[in-house]
Amino acid sequence: MITEQLFTLAWILVKILAILLPLVVVIAYTTFFERKVIGYMQVRIGPNRVGPRGFLQPWADVFKLLLKEIIVPSASNRFLFLLAPILALAPALAAWAVIPFDQQLVLANVNAGLLFLLAMTSLGVYGIVIAGWASNSKYAFLGALRSSAQIISYEIAMGIALIGVLMAAGSLNLTEIVMAQSGNLLSWYWLPLFPLFVVYWIAGVAETNRLPFDLAEGESEIVAGFHVEYAGGAFALFFLAEYANMILISVLTALLFFGGWLSPFQGIPVLEEAFAWVPGIAWLLLKSACFMFMYLWLRATFPRYRYDQVMRLGWKVFIPLTTFWIILVAVAVRLGVGPWF
């Protein structure tokens, strides 16, 4: 009995490692990819010195960060100062528990999976707020205040956009949401829920504090915002959390609006058989990679928003738009429009 329970526990731990280790490697190479992409967009080459074509650059960065000293400001609240990066990273990693990579490939097939994800992504703000307060520094504090107001604002629009998805799918379970989209390319939810998809994606960018919404960092006016006092490994944890969240939002957008692991050639006579050998997880990763690229594209293209404009976009544009669209979705679900509802 006990050995059986221990075995189950060990098996779950193995599964967790099987998700986390590739995730960390992907995060490391996302930073490399980001520097390369932005480099080429700005007609530069990007990092190309460490290893062949610069491929060992992320490891050089990782070891540099880990070997640096962690400096705790003397006027700071030491316990909370060191707790904050952990609070930022833990929910970013915990959210991956309910992500289905294929029809059977999921760590926890939770019925309220979508709610769990919303709850976890909303917890990430504590890391930022506590970091800003515990640092006992003006710039860090301003970053924390900006971040808390911004994340609260965009969480509402994000939640309402997700209501549209779960109304269309009739379930909160992520596996069932993806299976409800099966059919062909046009039966994925991006088409009937297009405004919700756009709002979800932009709110996702804002939630992860990425450009053009990175007011919590705002190098030009508040130096580096909430993590201005952090160095070494503690800073690396914030970095890790931010990129884990970015990848999470990309994967979620692919799952909720672009059919997850479903093949894009589904329902097309010849191509469907020709691509039947491709495993579902490959499609999911490919779709997510497109959204990851969009993150970098946005960063290289847009200037930072002004703070009042960020608030206006969240409250006065996104919330009315999503509310209006879920009323339309409700009517469409009632009437059973198209292949979607």
């Binding site: 909303s122 703000v125 707020v129 205040l145 808390s148 107001a149 609260i152």
Partner: peptide, 9 residues
């Protein structure tokens, strides 16, 4: 995720 963040704020 929401109410306590406003409290903290």
């Amino acid at each position: 995720g929401a109410v306590m963040v406003l409290f903290l704020f």
